[in-house]
Nucleic acid binder design. Structure first.
Length: 519
RNA sequence: GGCGGGGUAGCUCAGUUGGUUAGAGCAGCGGAAUCAUAAUCCGGAGGUCGCCAGUUCGAAUCUGGCCCCCGCUACCA
């Protein structure tokens, strides 16, 4: 019994180097959304992958004395390993070098061509090999040696190249109409404003092919031309659901995609070019583009030259996958830039995970284990305090869904930890350790109520920290089939009478390694 | 240059349609408790709400000007 389909994607990563923390961040956030939707009953298809063509891949390969093919075969497995390492639940991993994708790209090209939106012309301009960019003559100048250089001072040369063009200009109005009719097409809202103002400023036709290198997908019917890498890259989203077979069950079920999660640097490609290509090809446009921010290392942009690039594998080994996932999704408001630092993550791990949630589970469950023989008692009449904390927990799923409707992951976690804090206050206020001597039945009720709050928090934590949440639910003896959102909200309560396993720490505190502080 | 978003406690930020002593989390300080991963709970402290002027009985919240920061975009030498 599967629910409404939900198709979600990350952008495909460009594997001309090893994965960095930004790749991991996008994959983790997208995974959390995918898992959330699955637990909420949706029939989710979650796609990630790699974008393996383009001149940069070729150049990197040349630099390393490899063929592009060798380069991708070396690097792509590292991206696949990263996705696995961070427990991403993707249903497919697409590579643009795959045969299915070449067929799909050729097909969308032919559809755009059939629509009359592709024409052959000549592309000319001042080209900087170093910048990999064309410049308008006005952007160039002569340096003191008489060499013409671009805005960044790199030499430019005049090139004329035959190129196919896409009639992007034709789609300015349809795009603006789309933005008007679907105001949430791009989130966060600021990004939508930028996109709309860009389109309002007028669109020029887009150069859609190259002839100067051959690492890419050939233009159908003209082998001299290689498709512009973005045509190829964006098309991955429909390839994975069966395009060009638009009558296939998969395509009909999952397209249009519900959500493309991308970085803010590629908003234009997704919010302008991609819907224009699809409109031209007569294919439905995706429902939403969500642009996340960048991660900074102590306020500095990560870059190879500064030498502060973070290796996601090292980070996961240092802090643990789940704590790192939690940190990234809680600390950084989704859609905004965020800061990473050793201090910040240690603080989050220890304060939120170990002290607040982990310790609450430990102190309450060890009391159940020792005082009640590991068995949760049936609760008697509930006090006002009991009911207050229970209804706070019951209200969580509603708040979570509301925040998730606009991908506000951090707000879901915020709401959850507000309840965790309330539960700690409740626990301290009721003092079940004292009730053990004065009023054992009442102690049982307090422990039962606490366990029920932990159950709901545990289920809600599944999308964010899959392994740790599972551990928590194991300690509460929650049956596998009850670990979905259908069992949240007060319509269901934790079972009593069963013997719980002996409690074990779920979130160990992070203690500085004795030698040197980890970076 | 244009458009957009910001400048609020040490840090990260919330602040509805203008209204009594400007909030939260973290850090810091003091206290309580001792069930628990020395975790938890309570309490004080901490802010000229970027600057200036205006509207108003009253402005972080409205208007104008100015100064910084960020994003998108255009362009000049």
């Amino acid at each position: 019994m599967l629910g409404k389909p939900y198709y979600i994607t990350t952008a495909i990563a460009y594997p001309n180097g090893p994965p960095h923390i930004g790749h991991a961040y996008e994959a983790i956030a997208t995974d959390a959304i995918a898992r959330f939707m699955r637990l909420d009953g949706r029939d989710v298809f979650f796609l990630t992958g790699t974008d393996e063509h383009g001149i940069k891949m070729l150049q990197t390969a040349n630099k390393e004395n490899l063929t592009p093919r060798q380069l991708v075969e070396r690097n792509v497995p590292r991206f696949q390993a990263m996705v696995k390492k961070f427990e991403c639940s993707n249903d497919d991993f697409i590579r643009t070098t795959e045969a299915r994708h070449h067929a799909s790209s050729a097909a969308i090209w032919q559809r755009m061509e059939a629509a009359g939106d592709i024409y052959l012309d000549k592309y000319s301009g001042w080209y900087s090999v170093r910048d990999e960019a064309y410049y308008d003559e006005s952007e160039t100048r002569l340096d003191d040696k008489g060499q013409r250089v671009g805005p960044h001072g790199t030499p430019v040369e005049w090139v004329e190249e035959e190129s196919y063009f896409f009639r992007l200009s034709k789609y300015a109005e349809p795009l603006l109409k789309l933005y008007r009719e679907v105001p949430d097409f791009v989130l966060p809202k600021e990004r939508m404003n930028e996109v709309a103002s860009f389109v309002r400023g007028g669109l020029q036709d887009l150069s859609l092919s190259r002839t100067t290198f051959d690492w890419g997908i050939k233009v159908p019917g003209n082998d001299k031309h290689i498709m512009y890498v973005w045509v190829d890259a964006l098309t991955n989203y429909i390839t994975a659901v069966g395009f060009p077979d638009i009558e296939s069950e998969k395509f009909k079920k999952y397209w249009p995609a519900d959500l493309h999660v991308i970085g803010k640097d590629i908003v234009r490609f997704h919010a302008v070019y991609w819907p224009a290509f699809l409109m031209s090809a007569g294919i439905a446009v995706p429902r939403r583009i969500f642009s996340h921010g960048f991660l900074f290392n102590r306020g500095e942009k990560m870059s190879k030259s500064v030498g502060n690039v973070i290796d996601p594998f090292a980070l996961a080994d240092a802090y643990g996958v789940d704590p790192l996932r939690y940190f990234l999704l809680r600390e950084v408001p989704f859609g905004q830039d965020g800061n990473y630092s050793h201090e910040a993550i240690v603080n989050r791990i220890n304060a939120d995970l170990s002290n607040d949630l982990g310790n609450l589970a430990q102190r309450s469950l060890s009391m159940v284990a020792r005082g009640l023989g590991g068995v949760l008692p049936k609760p008697g009449a509930l006090s006002a305090n009991d009911q207050a904390i229970l209804s706070a927990a019951d209200a969580l799923i509603g708040k979570a869904r509301e925040a998730m409707a606009t991908q506000q992951l951090h707000q879901v976690l915020n709401a959850m930890w507000t309840v965790v804090a309330d539960a700690n206050r409740y626990f301290a206020g009721e003092a079940p350790w004292a009730l053990a001597k004065t009023d054992p039945p009442r102690q049982g009720i307090v422990l039962y109520v606490t366990a029920e709050v932990l159950r709901q928090v545990g289920i809600l934590a599944l999308p964010f920290m899959p392994s740790s949440a599972r551990k928590l639910l194991d300690l509460l003896a929650i049956p596998e089939r009850e670990r979905t959102f259908a069992f949240l909200g007060g319509g269901h309560r934790i079972a009593t009478g069963a013997k719980l396993p002996p409690p074990a720490a779920i979130f160990p505190r992070y203690v500085e390694p004795p030698t040197q502080a980890a970076q």
